[in-house]
Every structure is written in structure tokens, then in C-alpha cells.
């Protein structure tokens, strides 16, 4: 029994002396990161692409914001592949625009003949050490809009809401994989010092009782409604404080729908989550579609729709027609 006790105590001492140091890191390995988005609208002749090329870095500890050195990579060959054409991207240094590192922002950019919705576009980056990063995507497909009410004379809120609802609602036939960002902008003119100046004002989809304006966010839905009451309040607010309301001239309601193709939509979804106070999440999984490295290659196309105002609606606020 005595031996047993000694063994027990000895084991305790031995184990207590065990090294309990802990390093949350494994050995650092070089990786490259390519981030690029094809972005444009369907009306332009050309479409632009900006690409950012960086590399993995390490810091003392686990706070990456202590990294003082810009990880951007210069001098790589970055190309856009569209149909049978290869477009070299030009490296630019935007002076002082990299706020994080207080340095020049390294951007690779080009433009090319506007592709048709649904077409394939590729990117390829060849680094000085021979590493190649690449990806191919399909642009968002074409979208067609419908409104919940045939506004033949232009927009008015003076409609039968029991039949057509209480919101100006845009609908489109989309894809389950794509993500959409709808915006509605009021375009109007105001006479300032005798000249008509064009102005824009974003319309919220809803204005709460306490006056909070709720604007659209990225959605997977195929429709977005803007409350008539919200549009009316914004329109009415244009003339507030003006002695002569005829100095305001309503232009149109400009609806713009930005469609993110599948990869960019996945990337957005993977980086926007929430936790409650008790959940301790240990790691995260960020979407990537770059072969040979990390990052994202995606595309966003904007589709636009203009809706004029019904003259009687404009006049009801005392504005010019």
C-alpha cells in the first residue's frame, strides 16, 4: 500500500510538471491570394475588371492587424480570358489609397468588350516564382423586370392598394444561386441660383414609425417592394423649407438591380454570420474559387429600370412638371 501511495504521488508530480505550452499556429506556408470582380452594367460597351494580388503573411501572436507590411504583389502577369481573347491587366499604383498599410494601392485593371450575360470569363495570374492562380466564372444571366401595377402614366401612389398592395414592387426572374442588391433612387432637379441642378436621393424600402429608414440589403429573393408611404415621404421631403415648391422638378424613379453571380454570392454568404454571446466559434470557412491559391473571382452586373412620374402626382406636391 505504501508503494502504491508513492507511485500515485510520483505520477502526480510527473504529470504536473508536464509542459502545457500551447501554440495555436502550425508552420507558415506561402500562399497567394487573388481577388477580382468583373463589374459593369448591361448598357455600357465595355466592362471593367479590377484585381488585387496579395500573399499570406504571419505576425507575432494572432492579431493580423499588427502586420505592418503591405502583402500586395507587384509585377505579376494577370490576364482576363474572354471568348478567344486574352486581355493583359495593367498594374497601377494608386498613391496613398491603401489606408490599411498607409501605402500605394496596387491594382491590376483592364476593360474589355462588354460580355453578354451568362457568358464565361476567366482570369489567370502568373507570379514571378511561376505560381499560377486561375479561375473561370459565368456572368449573371439577363434579368427582366415586372412591376406590380401597370403605371401607364408614370408612377403614382394613387392606386387601389387592396388590389395592388401598398408598395411599388419590382419582380424579376432570377437564379437561385445568384444574390441581388436592389436600389431605388429618386432623380430630381432643383433650381439653384436660376439653374436646374440634377440631384439623387435613395429611397428606403420602408420608413418605421420612429422615422428609421430601412434600406434594401443583399437578397436571394426575386422581388423587392418599396412602400408607397416611404416614396411619398421622401418626395414630400424634397420641398420642405422651400418657399416656392415649383423649384423642384421630379425626374424619375431609377431602379437598379445588381446581380452577383454564384461565386461572389457564395463568398458574400460565407463571410457574413452571427453568433450569440455563448457560442465560441473556433474557425471559419471562407469561400474561394481560385485554383492554386486563395481568394475570389466573381462578377456583378447591374440591370436598370426607369419609371417616370404621373404628372398629377407631381403636381399634387406643388412641384414643377
Amino acid at each position: 500500500m505504501k508503494n502504491l501511495k508513492f507511485m500515485f504521488v510520483g505520477l502526480l508530480i510527473l504529470v504536473s510538471a508536464c509542459d502545457d505550452s500551447f501554440d495555436p499556429k502550425s508552420e507558415f506556408r506561402e500562399q497567394y491570394v487573388l481577388s477580382a470582380v468583373v463589374q459593369g452594367n448591361t448598357k455600357g460597351l465595355n466592362i471593367g475588371v479590377n484585381a488585387y494580388l496579395t500573399k499570406l503573411y504571419d505576425v507575432d501572436g494572432t492579431n493580423p492587424y499588427t502586420n505592418p507590411d503591405d502583402p500586395s504583389i507587384e509585377g505579376a502577369l494577370v490576364q482576363i480570358l474572354h471568348r478567344n481573347n486574352v486581355y493583359d491587366m495593367i498594374m497601377e499604383k494608386l498613391p496613398g489609397q491603401n489606408e490599411r498599410y498607409n501605402s500605394d494601392q496596387i491594382v491590376y485593371s483592364t476593360s474589355f468588350q462588354s460580355p453578354r450575360p451568362g457568358e464565361d470569363v476567366g482570369i489567370r495570374a502568373v507570379l514571378a516564382d511561376g505560381t499560377t492562380l486561375s479561375s473561370t466564372i459565368q456572368l449573371p444571366r439577363s434579368l427582366h423586370f415586372e412591376l406590380n401595377y401597370p403605371y401607364v402614366r408614370g408612377y403614382t401612389s394613387n392606386i387601389d392598394m387592396s388590389s395592388f398592395g401598398s408598395a411599388l414592387t419590382y419582380r424579376w426572374k432570377g437564379s437561385l444561386e445568384e444574390l441581388y442588391f436592389p436600389t431605388l433612387t429618386l432623380i430630381y432637379q432643383q433650381k439653384i441660383d436660376g439653374s436646374w441642378v440634377t440631384k439623387r436621393r435613395d429611397i428606403p424600402r420602408e420608413i418605421l414609425e420612429d422615422g428609421t429608414e430601412v434600406f434594401p440589403e443583399y437578397i436571394y429573393d426575386y422581388e423587392m417592394g418599396f412602400d408607397y408611404s416611404a416614396i411619398d415621404q421622401i418626395v414630400e421631403s424634397l420641398g420642405e423649407g422651400l418657399a416656392d415648391k415649383s423649384e423642384i422638378k421630379l425626374g424619375s424613379l431609377f431602379f437598379k438591380l445588381t446581380s452577383l453571380e454564384r461565386n461572389l454570392a457564395n463568398y458574400y454568404s460565407s463571410t457574413n454570420g452571427f453568433l450569440d454571446s455563448y457560442s465560441i466559434r473556433l474557425d471559419e470557412e471562407v469561400y474561394t474559387n481560385i485554383s492554386g491559391g486563395l481568394g475570389i473571382f466573381g462578377a456583378a452586373l447591374s440591370f436598370e429600370f426607369d419609371l417616370a412620374f404621373d404628372p398629377s402626382y407631381t403636381v399634387s406636391y406643388g412641384y414643377s412638371f
Binding site: 495555436p24 507558415f28 499570406l56 503573411y57 504571419d58 490599411r100 452577383l260
Partner: peptide, 14 residues
Amino acid sequence: TPIIGFYDRPEVSL
């Protein structure tokens, strides 16, 4: 899951 390193990724805005 150990950390290999860090990288900067762009945030999606509009």
C-alpha cells in the same frame, strides 16, 4: 485547427 497564416480579403459592398 491550427493557424497557418493570415491574408487580407476584400469585403463585399455595392
